[in-house]
């Protein structure tokens, strides 16, 4: 009984679902406040993302005449559910280990592509030319950053697998356990290029400046999100909040999962997420401008890809 409840609970309450949502929205609130302070503004209240969500929930969803309604309304739902599931797949060192039946790192990688795919579908289903441009940009971005991400994950998996005497290990709990005993990959020179590639990946995945190209407000007016309103837009906000938790949590699990057991482990995990969000997202997005899609594409093929390949080669040869 308990076991059969375990998976739904992990998806709906903790660590996915409600917990991840609250965490993601809080992280967004912190990010907005810090970015505002860095720009010399006062900034919104920390709970602003929660207020936004409540406001959107109360509003009506408008569906454009030109939109394909089932796809238009289904896309955000699929995105939010996929991210809730993904959040349940990310372990919290010392506190939570996902059920192996739920999936491993490879499943997580697949789920991580869902938000981008969903945005592409939403953009093209909305019938707006800006949505269509957002679609093509989102696709280009995805092609650019997915490759390096897979190679980064492969490098970490291979490092763990080789360290354990096997070849590769795509189990996050094993990767964490390996780092708990052998030291975090953050301090492993072989994986530094992979870490750098990962640091370039997640602003792109989270859609923040300099890589917020598919949704660039001053260019394509939020692109795929342009025609969305009310609860449907709220679902996209939920998806984006959950995605922040998943991507940052994945970064922590891959590179610095060292944490004490029990509730302290959860606290340490939260501190790491906040630090990563503030340093890796807020500071990055206030300190530069947006790239053009061709510039971003070239950047990803040049640096993160090369770094990830380098890291993989180092790990394989060492």
């Amino acid at each position: 009984m308990i076991e059969s409840l375990y998976t739904p609970l992990a998806m709906l309450i903790f660590p996915g679902g409600l917990f991840a949502l609250a965490l993601g929205l809080s992280l967004k609130g912190l990010d907005r406040r810090l970015a505002a302070r860095l720009q010399g503004r006062v900034g919104p209240p920390l709970a602003q993302p929660f207020y936004d969500l409540v406001k959107l929930a109360k509003k009506r969803t408008m569906v454009p005449d030109t939109a394909c309604q089932p796809v238009f309304l289904g896309a955000p739902l699929i995105g939010a559910v996929a991210m809730a599931l993904a959040a349940a797949l990310v372990p919290i060192a010392g506190f939570y280990t996902p059920d192996p039946l739920l999936g491993d790192l490879l499943v997580l990688l697949y789920l991580l592509t869902v938000p981008a795919v969903v945005l592409m579908i939403a953009g093209s289903a909305s019938g707006s030319p800006f949505g269509a441009i957002g679609f093509s940009r989102e696709m280009a971005m995805m092609l650019a950053y997915e490759g390096p991400l897979v190679l980064v994950v492969a490098a970490v998996a291979m490092r763990t697998g080789l360290g354990q005497g096997g070849l590769v290990s795509f189990s996050l709990p094993e990767i964490i356990a390996y780092q708990q005993t052998h030291g975090a990959f953050l301090f492993d020179p072989l994986l530094w290029p992979a870490l750098a590639a990962f640091l370039a990946f997640y602003p792109a995945n989270l859609g923040i400046i300099p890589f917020d190209i598919p949704e660039a407000e001053t260019e394509v007016l939020e692109g795929p999100l342009l025609e969305y309103s009310g609860p449907a837009l709220g679902l996209f906000k939920i998806m984006s909040a959950l995605k922040a938790v998943v991507v940052l949590g994945l970064g922590v699990a891959l590179f610095y999962p060292i944490a004490p057991d029990g509730i302290a482990g959860l606290a340490v995990h939260l501190v790491k997420l906040i630090a990563l969000m503030l340093i890796g997202v807020s500071v990055v997005r206030v300190s530069c401008g947006r790239l053009r899609i061709d510039q971003a594409f070239r950047f990803f093929l040049k640096w993160p890809l090369a770094l990830a390949v380098l890291s993989l080669a180092c790990v394989a040869l060492a």
């Binding site: 720009q39 010399g40 400046i209 300099p210 001053t218 206030v286 530069c288 401008g289």
Partner: peptide
């Protein structure tokens, strides 16, 4: 327009 909001504010 370039998306560099900090510079805009400054």
């Amino acid at each position: 327009l370039v998306g560099f909001e900090s510079l805009f504010m400054h």
